[in-house]
Amino acid sequence: MIEVISTDRCIRCDICERICPAFVFDRDETGLPVIARQDDCQTCFLCEIYCPTDALYVAEDAHGPTGISEAEVVERGLFGTYARSLGWSRGRAGGAQNDPTRHIRVAQV
């Protein structure tokens, strides 16, 4: 589930708060998102790809926080990995035209 919001990277644009389908975020007085309802997170990783500055990190465990720190996310290069593998960048969609899934579906049968 959602675990890390990088205060340094975040530009307080409020996109994550608006687009999170599970309504997980609130904002503090400075406009920084806060994880207000963590247990509602559906671990869909979509806030990560919508964030224009790769400031969010969603850990793999859907049932509870893993306790990963921002430092570890940085060190392991995990900010923005899902967006990059899709071809999304700075919160903008991209890369669907390069999706090779057709090869998988042909081989599947």
């Binding site: 990783f45 793999e60 995990l78 899902y82 593998s85 999706d99 090869h103 998988i104």
Partner: peptide, 16 residues
């Protein structure tokens, strides 16, 4: 390679 690029969400848990 196709799986990684075509189904990138599947690989998020492993990568993480």
């Amino acid at each position: 390679d196709w799986l990684r690029r075509g189904q990138p969400n599947c690989f998020q848990p492993y990568d993480r």
